[in-house]
Amino acid sequence: EKSKTSFFNKLSKAVAGKSKVDDDVLDNLEEILVTSDVGVNTTLKIIERIEERVSNDKYLGTDELNVILREEIAGLLSETNVGEETEFSIPTDKKPYVLMVVGVNGVGKTTTIGKLAHQFNAKGLKVVLGAADTFRAAAIDQLQVWADRVGVPIVKQDMGSDPASVAFDTLQSGVAQDADVIIIDTAGRLHNKVNLMNELTKVKRVMQKVVGDAPHDVLLVLDGSTGQNAFEQAKQFTAATEVTSLAVTKLDGTAKGGVVIGISDQFQIPVKYIGVGEGMEDLQVFNKYEFVDSFFK
């Protein structure tokens, strides 16, 4: 709170009645953004936007400033991020709605799936989980624990079996069970590993044998404490699977996850969810204004 107030105070002093912002204040803004992992490029872009606004609408008051700062930063987030959505929802015209979850190692894919399953299940939707991480030690057991915790069925095979085959089975079983939502867990993989990325493309393709337009949503999970490498992650996962939404996890710590601003801007992918803990309830629908505000806290 303290740094937030003092930053806005400084900003207003530097801008009130002027057509240019003081360098000191811009330096301060740069520090806040860069240390939130926004990255140099995106930070410069934001600063340019602020400067432009200030020179256009001269004689700004304090209140307007606060609004401008938020607007210009939030404005970079993909337009589909209206920032007013508060409900966990899925389109009603797709049944089953197939969600595939991807990302690098350890970011929180399986946990996010457990939390999502809980949200959908609580809304009375029928959820089926698919354990297509057949590689990481005890990955299947981990998803099983989540399935039991939430009380939803899981489709699985043995460790080491073909992930595409598990996904195929899950969709067949989901269709047979008249499921509303099917969520496929995949093994963590670094985006620079060509074979593993190809495997993901295959998993996606095989699903379409059961449900023609599946997956309806490819959710890329990003660890909120990741820095600029997240850009490359978004790029490569998009190339392999056409990522359609983002989740940012572990925002209950001191990391800010600012890198998603540039990612959402560059790839036009909306951020849908944020993870704020390890429990079942610790998933929130993304709100861009709250997100931006957290940088200044």
Partner: peptide
């Protein structure tokens, strides 16, 4: 520590 960690590495 994960080598992909960003600015927060120092705090942690």
């Amino acid at each position: 520590v994960d080598s992909m960690t960003g600015q927060d590495a120092v705090n942690t």
